[in-house]
Design a protein around this nucleic acid. Structure first.
Lengths: 195, 195
DNA sequence: GTCTATAGTAGGATAGAC
DNA sequence: GTCTATCCTACTATAGAC
C-alpha cells in the first residue's frame, strides 16, 4: 500500500471516500481513525486534508450522496398510476437498491448520531422525503379503496422497517434468489395493506 | 457530581452500569470514554475498574443482561395454544417490552460490532433463541392452516424488523396510545400472515 | 473503595519541505 | 499533492497513597 510522492488529485478523492465507506461500515465512524483511512488509500494521514476539511465532512458527504442517489433513482422510475402496482414497484426498488449498497445503507442508518446537528437535519430531511413517496402511494390506494390501512403513517414506517430487515440476513448466493426475496416480501407487504 | 472519598460498593456498581447504558445509547460505545462514565457517576475513572475489568466487559454485561431479561420475560407469559392468539400475544409483548427499554434495545442492536468475537457469539445465540420463539408460533399456525406463509424464516425476520421499527418513532404522549400502537401493528401483522 | 498521578498509546489536525 | 514531523489533546488502564 505504501506510495511514493506524486500527484493524484483526480483519483485520490474517490479512493478516500471508498475506503472511508468500507471502514465506517465495518467498524463504525467513531472507531475509525484518519490514519486507518489513509493507510487503506496508501497515503499519509495529512494528505487526506487536501480532500476533506475534517472527518465529519467525510461522513456527511457519504451519507448525503447516498440519499441523493436513492431519491434520484426512485424519481427515474416510471411510476404506475395504479396504487397496487406502484407499491409493488416500490418494494422491488427498495430491496434491490439497498441490497446493492450494503455499506452505504448501513452507514446511513447507524451513523446518524455521529452527524453534527446541522448535518443531521439535512440527512433527516432527505430520509423523510423518501418516506413520503411511500406514504403517497399508500394514501392514494387507501383513498381509492384498493388498500385498507388503519394508519398510513405507521404503515409507511412499518413497511420500510420490514424491507430494511432484508439487509440483515440476505447474502447473494444464499437460499433464495433476489427475485424470490422480492416475491416473498411483496407477498407479505401486499397482504398487510390489502382491503 | 464531585464526590469525596467513601465506600459505596453496593450502589456504585449499578450506577456505573446505568450511566454507561445511557451514554452508550446516546453517543455510541466507541465514542464514550471511561472518564465520561466516571463523571456521570461522580467518581474518578480509575475507580470504575473496581467494578469492571475493562470497557468491553461493561458493554457485554449490559447486552447480556438485556437479552436474558427478554427471554425470561417471554418465558413467563402463559402462551396460548392457539397460534393466532400466541402471535397476538407476541406482538403485544415485543412492543411493550422494547418500548420500556429504549436504551437497552438500541445498544443491543447498534453495538453488536463492538463486541469481541466471543462475546458477539454469545449475544447472537440469545437473539436467535428469541427469534426461534416467534418462528415456532408461525410454523405452528402454518401447519394448522391458520396462517398462510410462503417462508416462515423470512416472515419471522420481517415481523421482528417491522415491530422494531416502532422504536424509531414512538414517543409516550404522542399521537397514539400504547394500546393503539399495539392494535395497529397487530392489524398489520395479522393480515401479513393470515390464510 | 476511591483518590491522585501517570504510563503508554493513539487520536484529529496543522506546518513546512519537496 | 504528498510527505514528514509535530502540536495538543484524549484515551484505557494501572500503581500506590489514604
Amino acid at each position: 500500500m505504501a506510495r511514493t510522492q506524486g500527484s493524484h488529485s483526480d483519483i485520490t478523492g474517490p479512493r478516500i471516500r471508498k475506503a472511508a465507506l468500507a471502514l465506517f461500515a465495518r467498524h463504525g465512524y467513531a472507531a475509525v481513525s484518519m490514519r486507518q483511512i489513509a493507510f487503506e488509500v496508501g497515503v499519509q494521514a495529512g494528505a487526506l486534508y487536501n480532500y476533506t476539511p475534517d472527518k465529519q465532512s467525510l461522513l456527511y458527504r457519504l451519507m448525503h450522496e447516498h440519499m441523493q442517489d436513492l431519491l434520484s433513482a426512485y424519481d427515474e422510475l416510471e411510476q404506475s398510476a395504479d396504487a397496487s402496482q406502484a407499491l409493488r414497484q416500490f418494494v422491488g426498488f427498495h430491496i434491490r437498491f439497498h441490497l446493492e449498497r450494503p455499506d452505504e445503507v448501513f452507514i446511513a442508518y447507524m451513523e446518524l448520531r455521529n452527524l453534527t446537528p446541522e448535518n443531521f437535519s439535512e440527512i433527516e430531511a432527505l430520509r423523510r422525503k423518501y418516506e413520503d413517496t411511500l406514504e403517497a402511494i399508500l394514501s392514494r390506494g387507501q383513498e381509492g379503496g384498493v388498500f385498507d390501512i388503519a394508519d398510513t403513517k405507521i404503515a409507511t414506517l412499518a413497511v420500510i422497517a420490514m424491507l430494511n430487515g432484508v439487509m440483515t440476513w440476505y447474502r447473494a448466493g444464499g437460499r433464495l434468489s433476489l427475485d424470490e426475496v422480492e416475491q416473498v416480501y411483496w407477498d407479505i407487504v401486499r397482504r398487510s395493506v390489502s382491503a
